[in-house]
């Protein structure tokens, strides 16, 4: 019972090494999957992700290697009692000191990134009011608050509005290379505005307005969806972020304004019709 045939140990070693290798390969795959992000803010968060990932990987490999080594090196070979070592001063100080240094470093870097991404949009930047509801989204653009295309004489109540349904994902138009401020609201339950390629989400909370600012740097369509459980069709609460050049954005606004405001009514329309 005390000594076991060698092959079993080799098998154990193989299994452990293989799982360590598997983890490494998988983390590598994960980093291939990790979106780089399409906004200035996302790029900074992506940098932070890589720092955390590398630190995590180093810690994992060191500890896992020590674990595997100990299991192989100190497997029972004879019936002799090993030295009864209880631990002691210096090594226990190191046990605390090393993790403290690591976490303080990571915390500091995280906070620096947090300060960097906490952007405030200039007053004249495009502001979009996002309202989440069970189970889709409304995106409202005030004509007086469209960034460079704003109409200073517009009625403050004049707005174009995109409303989706669970079956028809609304499209959120954004101009590229401009800061955009989002105001997030909800009137029913909590939702969460999550755009994978922003590397960011923020909750829509009844009784409260949350806001954030990003500057998209890439054009294209990016899928997004609600990230906070909100009821039966939570999974269908999807939308598309469409980042376009400014002139294309202006054309879209003009078309929507003509359709929605020209008839002097805020007709509900889905993004698909707004194409």
């Amino acid at each position: 019972m005390l000594s076991m045939p060698l092959p079993r140990h080799l098998r154990l070693l193989a299994v452990t090494l293989a799982s360590g290798l598997l983890a490494l390969v998988a983390i590598g795959t994960a980093s291939a999957i990790q979106p780089r992000g399409i906004t200035d803010e996302a790029h900074k968060m992506n940098d932070l992700f890589w720092i955390v990932l590398i630190v995590a990987l180093v810690v994992f490999v060191l500890v896992a290697a020590a674990l595997v080594y100990a299991l192989v090196r100190y497997r029972r070979k004879d019936d002799e009692l090993p030295e009864q070592f209880h631990g002691g001063g210096k090594i226990e100080v190191a046990m605390v000191g090393v993790p403290v240094l690591i976490v303080i470093a990571l915390f500091t870097i995280s906070m620096l990134t947090l300060i960097e991404i906490d952007d405030k949009a200039p007053d004249d930047a495009l502001t979009i009011e996002v309202t989440g509801f069970q189970f889709s989204w409304q995106f409202a653009y005030k004509m007086s608050d469209l960034g460079t295309n704003s109409d200073p004489n517009a009625d403050p109540d004049d707005a174009i509005s995109i409303i989706g349904t669970p079956q028809n994902d609304p499209i959120l138009y954004l101009p590229v290379d401009e800061p955009v401020e989002f105001l997030l609201k909800s009137n029913d339950v909590i939702h969460s505005f999550y755009v994978k390629d922003f590397l960011y989400k923020l909750d829509l909370i009844p009784g409260r307005v949350n806001s954030f600012t990003v500057t998209p740097r890439e054009t294209g369509d990016f899928s997004a969806q609600c990230a906070e459980l909100c009821g039966t069709n939570h999974a269908l609460m999807r939308f598309v972020v469409r980042v376009v050049e400014r002139d294309e954005f202006d054309a879209w606004v003009a078309q929507e304004a003509a359709r929605q405001l020209g008839e002097d009514t805020l007709v509900s329309s889905s993004g698909k019709q707004g194409d």
């Binding site: 995590a56 976490v103 947090l114 999550y194 994978k196 960011y200």
Partner: peptide, 20 residues
Amino acid sequence: IGGINGTFSAAVPVDFALHD
């Protein structure tokens, strides 16, 4: 692994992406 992958969420800006 469960301890290490928790640090990603402790880094607040990374958690903005990974939360939920």
